[in-house]
């Protein structure tokens, strides 16, 4: 990290340093992605991790839940999964002559929705409603989900057979989308030498309690974003609307998401103000799944986002 008086400027307790460090030991060579994932949770947003099977998506989700001390549940999405399998069902109890609601796996602080694109759109939308509303409506009754409530969804790339890609409107519900990608040579070598990492997750001890997190989220959301920085965010959003590389531009909600993510990123760096660097760091994760590339209509290409950054002057 750069030696600058800016980091650590505020003398804030570095609560997340341990989380970053411990997670880095489980998922090797992915510090940037881990940091993004944590920033996403700090900004109170949901996370979509997209990659081929076996790249460590589940391990990452599991590790974060463990380290943040969150109550964790995992839903493996399959093509025959029904909405009730997620939200829960009411069963008749003979003793009480009444229905009792059995909460589904969504009633957890951190829900890992594994391979979300394997399920039918109906089932997907049950989860997405819970993500948006923070509550579940089943059999006419609305039930509040616990706080904090995070969803980390994983997805295999859409070109695989037998999947239902998430529609754009639902992609928008995820604050960030990450790709883990292959580890680099040294990380892979270390991984091979150490054997599978997944069992080591169980050995991790939580570094936070669930009560700590809302306070930290609150703190992160008050990081100062000065006028010139908001100008910059605005310029970037406008540039996506003008840029012929994209079919359409970013929505105002996406702009808010970008700013929130940048704030969390700044907070992680120990600063009390957002810098253009923070915006640039989170922009690909926040914007790519919200844009459509003019070539082929898939997610915006990473190169296009990089070109976008290079086309906007920092005010």
């Amino acid at each position: 990290m750069l030696k600058s008086t800016l980091s650590g400027l505020t003398g804030r307790p570095r609560a997340f340093d341990g989380v970053l460090e411990q997670a880095g030991r489980i998922i090797l060579g992915k510090e940037h992605e881990i940091r993004l994932a944590i920033a996403c949770l700090l900004a109170n947003g949901h996370l979509l991790i997209e990659d081929l099977p076996g790249m460590g998506k589940t391990t990452l989700a599991h590790t974060l839940a463990r380290l943040l001390g969150l109550q964790f549940s995992r839903i493996q999405f399959t093509s025959d999964l029904l909405p009730a399998d997620i939200t829960g069902v009411s069963v008749f109890e003979r003793e009480r002559s009444d229905f009792r609601f059995l909460p589904g796996p969504v009633f957890a602080q951190l829900v890992l929705a594994d391979e979300i694109n394997r399920a039918t759109p109906k089932t997907q939308s049950a989860l997405l409603e819970a993500m948006e509303e923070g509550q579940v409506t089943a059999e006419g009754q609305t039930r509040m989900l616990p706080t904090p409530f995070f969803v980390i969804a994983t997805q295999n790339p859409a070109h695989q057979i037998g999947t239902f890609p998430l529609p754009e409107s639902q992609l928008d519900r995820f604050l960030m989308r990450l790709e883990l990608g292959y580890p680099d040579r040294t990380a892979e070598r270390a991984l091979l030498a150490a054997g599978g990492q997944r069992r080591r997750v169980e050995e991790l001890t939580p570094l936070l309690t669930p009560d700590d997190l809302p306070a930290l989220q609150q703190e992160a959301s008050t990081i100062h974003a000065a006028g010139p920085l908001i100008d910059y965010v605005q310029a970037l959003i406008e540039a996506t609307r003008q840029n012929p590389a994209f079919l359409h531009g970013l929505s105002p909600r996406a702009g808010l998401a970008l700013l929130a993510a940048a704030r969390a990123w700044a907070w992680l760096a120990g600063r009390d103000m957002v810098l253009p660097d923070d915006v640039q760091a989170v922009l690909p994760a926040v914007a790519r799944h919200r844009l459509r590339s003019a070539q082929g209509g898939g997610y915006a290409l990473a190169e296009d986002i990089a070109a976008l950054i290079r086309s906007v002057a920092i005010p």
Binding site: L2, S4, L275, P276, D277, I309, R310, V312, A313, I314
Partner: peptide, 10 residues
């Protein structure tokens, strides 16, 4: 460059 952040420049 106009898009380069001060920290990158440093």
């Amino acid at each position: 460059s106009p898009w380069e952040t001060p920290l990158d420049l440093a």
